[in-house]
Amino acid sequence: MLTMEDIIRDGHPTLREVAAEVAMPPSDEDKQILLSLLEYVKNSQNPDMAAQYGLRPGIGLAAPQINVSKRMIAVHVYDDNGNLYSYALFNPKIVSHSVEQAYLLSGEGCLSVDESIPGYVPRYARITLKGWDINGEEVKLRLKGLPAICFQHEIDHLNGIMFYDYINKQDPFKPVEGAIGIER
């Protein structure tokens, strides 16, 4: 089981690398890594498990965050309507996105970043992504709101991008023109 000790911190070179594609069908080792990412996110949201194992709550985790530079992410997040988006994906890729942007009014956080970095992180309001599940089956998702933001955050990790790279350095809370502000 993954713990906070397995998660590398901001400044580690792996977080700035472009991760490698995972060969399909996935190896047993890659499947195990992918499952462990999802397990961490689910466990971190369970107050008893989080307390017992010292897990910081998260809604997503990417393989580079555990120092595995491969294109794998796990997300376990609810949308505004209480629908659960729980996915562990190999090689996720945004295939289309809205022109309209959105951002979390509370800003974003990251399990690899210990300090709070305030500011708005503009992202696409709606995305369509493709990836492959644990069995190597193609998955296509159309997302908006918090799930869309979460998947974009995790996919950025696969490309060596950190959420704070998008924050306006001069005015972190400058409203993003024409964008939707999302409560979390």
Score class of each variant (00 low, 15 high):
Leu2Ser: 01
Thr3Phe: 04
Met4Thr: 09
Gly11Ile: 00
Gly11Asn: 06
Pro13Asn: 10
Arg16Ile: 09
Arg16Ser: 11
Val18Lys: 15
Val18Phe: 10
Ala20Asp: 13
Val22Pro: 01
Pro25Asp: 10
Ser27Met: 11
Ser27His: 08
Asp28Trp: 07
Glu29Met: 09
Glu29Pro: 00
Glu29Gly: 09
Asp30Trp: 07
Asp30Glu: 12
Lys31Asp: 06
Lys31Tyr: 05
Leu34Pro: 04
Leu34Gly: 02
Leu35Tyr: 03
Leu35Pro: 01
Ser36Met: 11
Leu37Asp: 02
Leu38Gly: 10
Val41Ile: 10
Val41Glu: 01
Val41Thr: 00
Lys42Gly: 00
Lys42Asn: 10
Asn43Ala: 15
Gln45Pro: 08
Asp48Val: 15
Met49Phe: 12
Ala50Val: 06
Ala50Met: 03
Ala51Val: 10
Ala51Asn: 12
Gly54Met: 08
Pro57Trp: 03
Pro57Cys: 01
Pro57Lys: 03
Gly58Glu: 02
Ala62Ser: 06
Ala63Asp: 08
Ala63Thr: 06
Pro64Met: 06
Gln65Asp: 09
Ile66Ser: 02
Asn67Pro: 07
Ser69Val: 03
Lys70Trp: 09
Arg71Asp: 05
Arg71Lys: 14
Met72Val: 03
Ile73Lys: 04
Ile73Val: 13
Ala74Trp: 07
Val75Ile: 08
His76Gln: 00
Val77Met: 04
Val77Ile: 12
Asp79Ser: 08
Asn81Tyr: 13
Tyr85Gly: 02
Leu89Asp: 06
Phe90Arg: 01
Lys93Cys: 15
Ser96Tyr: 10
His97Thr: 11
Ala102Cys: 11
Ala102Leu: 07
Leu105His: 11
Leu105Ile: 13
Ser106Tyr: 00
Cys110Tyr: 05
Ser112Met: 02
Ser112Cys: 08
Ser112Thr: 06
Val113Ser: 05
Val113Gly: 08
Asp114Lys: 13
Asp114Asn: 14
Asp114Ala: 12
Glu115Tyr: 11
Ser116Glu: 14
Ser116Asn: 14
Tyr120Pro: 06
Tyr120Glu: 02
Pro122Val: 09
Pro122Asp: 00
Arg123Met: 07
Ala125Pro: 04
Ala125Asn: 07
Thr128Asn: 13
Lys130Ile: 14
Lys130His: 12
Glu137Met: 14
Glu138Asn: 11
Glu138Gly: 09
Lys140Leu: 14
Lys144Cys: 13
Lys144Gln: 14
Pro147Thr: 00
Pro147Asn: 02
Ala148Asp: 01
Ala148Pro: 07
Ala148Phe: 05
Ile149Thr: 06
Ile149Lys: 00
Cys150Trp: 04
Glu154Gln: 03
Asp156Lys: 01
Leu158Trp: 08
Met162Trp: 00
Phe163Arg: 01
Tyr164Gly: 04
Ile167Ala: 02
Ile167Lys: 03
Lys169His: 11
Asp171Met: 15
Lys174Met: 12
Pro175Leu: 13
Glu177Ser: 14
Ile182Gln: 02
Ile182Tyr: 07
Glu183Val: 14
Arg184Tyr: 12
Arg184Ala: 14
Arg184His: 12
Arg184Val: 12
